[in-house]
Computed example of a mutant assay.
Amino acid sequence: MRYPDLDLPKLARRAEAGRRALARRPIPALIGSAAMLAAAVTTAAVLHETSDPADAHVAAAAVPAPATAAPGKPADPPAPDPLLTAPEEHSVDYDFQFQPNYYYCGPASTRMALTSSGVSMSQGDVASRLGTTVNGTNSAADVTRAMNGVLGKDEYQTHWIPGQQATGAQAERLQRDVVAAMSGGRAVVANIVGGATDASGVYHEFSGGHYITLVGYRDRGRAVQVADPSGMFGPRTYWMSTWNMANWIAARGYSA
Results as ranks from 00 to 15, higher is better:
Met1Gln: 09
Met1His: 12
Met1Ile: 14
Tyr3Lys: 06
Asp5Phe: 11
Asp7Gln: 10
Arg13Thr: 11
Arg13Trp: 04
Arg19Gly: 07
Arg20Ala: 15
Ala21Ser: 08
Leu22Gly: 09
Leu22Gln: 13
Leu22Asp: 12
Ala23Val: 05
Ile31Pro: 03
Ser33Lys: 12
Ala34Ser: 09
Ala35Ile: 08
Ala38Tyr: 03
Thr42Cys: 13
Val46Asp: 12
His48Phe: 10
Thr50Ile: 07
Pro53Val: 08
Ala56Leu: 09
Ala59His: 05
Ala60Asn: 14
Ala61Ile: 05
Ala61Tyr: 02
Ala61Cys: 08
Ala61His: 02
Ala62Gln: 12
Val63Arg: 12
Ala67Thr: 12
Lys73Val: 07
Asp76Tyr: 07
Pro78Glu: 14
Pro82Val: 01
Leu83Asn: 10
Tyr94Asn: 08
Pro100Asn: 10
Pro100Gly: 15
Asn101Ser: 12
Asn101Pro: 02
Cys105Gln: 05
Arg111Lys: 09
Ala113Ser: 10
Ser117Glu: 09
Gly118Ser: 06
Val119Leu: 04
Met121Gln: 04
Gly124Phe: 05
Val134Phe: 10
Ser139Ile: 06
Ala140Gly: 15
Asp142Leu: 13
Asp142Ile: 03
Val143His: 00
Gly149Asp: 11
Val150Pro: 09
Leu151His: 11
Gly152Phe: 02
Glu155Val: 13
Tyr156Ser: 10
Pro162Gly: 10
Gly163Lys: 03
Gln164Tyr: 02
Gln164Glu: 13
Gln165Met: 12
Ala166Trp: 00
Ala169Phe: 02
Gln170Glu: 11
Arg173His: 12
Val179Lys: 00
Gly184Ile: 02
Val188Cys: 05
Ala190Val: 13
Asn191Val: 01
Ile192Val: 15
Ala199Leu: 15
Tyr203Glu: 06
Phe206Thr: 08
Ser207Leu: 15
Tyr211Thr: 07
Ile212Thr: 06
Ile212Pro: 00
Leu214Gly: 05
Val215Tyr: 01
Tyr217Gln: 11
Gly221Cys: 08
Val224Cys: 12
Asp228Val: 07
Thr237Val: 11
Ser241Gln: 01
Thr242Tyr: 00
Met245Asp: 02
Met245Glu: 08
Ala246His: 03
Ile249Tyr: 04
Ala251Cys: 09
Gly253Glu: 01
Gly253Cys: 09
Gly253Phe: 00
Ser255Val: 09
